[in-house]
Design a protein around this nucleic acid. Structure first.
Lengths: 196, 196
DNA sequence: CGATTCTTTGAAAACAGTCAATCTGTGTGG
DNA sequence: CCACACAGATTGACTGTTTTCAAAGAATCG
């Protein structure tokens, strides 16, 4: 059950066997099925979630009745709403599974303990946060400077794997364009490729 | 020169007089004039910058010749490109002054020392990062779910002060709409208010 | 005042969104 | 194995919004 996680973390963090065992001992395993809701708006995000298998999706429900997708979390990535997790305040997001998934959960109490005990884990956790922040900045830039076509292009080159695994209308939601526009963009692109 | 900073930080971080003095002793003061470039794309972001007076702007120059504004940094806020600062890699952004400004700079070496010596400063610095990450997430949501009008509305209520101080075309650049659209949105809004 | 920067405006064109209908593939239960 | 339901993708016609371009009008600054 923990092999995936060990394979993931070993090259990234320099841990002794005991430290790794300790870290794993604090985690709880959870399996969720496709379409199952994992975190609901209004709840507190109590765990750091590592996805060892599957695919999660974080989205916001707005008054207009639409879902807006903030993030996809495939295997070997983390899903945490830092705002809710850090302050233990209600989250604004929903998280559900797009595929049957296997997760490792650490409660905040346990993870805080881990961080205090093993500085390398703290540093690693900080690095993860940094890079999601950087990604968020890039996404803002994309949002304000790209056309629909460029957004599509960017998505399929940045996340080819996720693109293959999620329905188009979710990519559209992530990018902030309508699904119809996205199919048209894709058609145009397809024609263009044939012409060359 | 350090009064502004002390007034800013005292209610936020619990520091002894000596700690505060130590922190200030590591800072260097810098004044920049309106329109002056502070950080240029390709350079490494070597400092944490605290703005004690004035207004900075972080933007990206793209191949299409346009400037895309990532962030405004008014007095009592920080300006750091974390990606460049943490890894000491070249930044993708430019920073310039929109008003004559007074800054406090800490080099990475000095700030690392500070953080190691005074845990409260580390915690505070982390909190700052968290909240800019949260803000970035909100901005993504705004970008993918708001109309031009809602973006405008959101900006003037979220940053009324900055709105008064920067030219409209920069707000447009920040929001990812053309300056003409923003004028029109504003005209429509103005008419509406008269009608009520 | 003259120069520059900023804002507004109008008209046309490009772009993206909506609505409704159809098509496709998948999986489920009989 | 078939029929059916369902989720997803596509298409066309239309509407509405946003951009672009060009020009002119304010405001600001030295």
């Amino acid at each position: 059950m923990f092999e995936c996680f060990e394979a993931y973390i070993t090259p990234k963090v320099d841990l002794t066997k005991e430290q790794l065992r300790y870290m794993c001992s604090l985690a709880t395993v959870r399996k969720v099925r496709r379409r199952q809701l994992l975190v609901k708006e209004g709840e507190v995000c109590r765990h750091k979630i590592f996805i060892s298998k599957g695919l999660l999706r974080t989205y916001r429900l707005k008054d207009d009745g639409n879902e807006y997708i903030m993030r996809f979390s495939p295997e070997n990535s983390w899903n945490v709403d830092h705002e809710s997790y850090n302050n233990q305040t209600p989250t604004k997001y929903n998280v559900d599974a797009l595929e049957d998934s296997e997760l490792l959960l650490w409660s905040k109490e346990d993870f805080d303990e881990l961080i205090a005990a093993i500085p390398a884990i703290r540093a690693f956790s900080d690095r993860i946060k940094e890079s999601s922040y950087d990604a968020s900045q890039e996404r803002v830039l994309m949002n304000i400077s790209y056309t629909a076509e460029e957004k599509y292009e960017d998505f399929i080159t940045s996340f080819p794997d996720i693109f293959r695994r999620v329905p188009l209308h979710m990519v559209a939601s992530y990018l902030g364009v309508s699904r119809e526009t996205l199919t048209r963009v894709r058609q145009a692109r397809f024609k263009q490729q044939k012409d060359n």
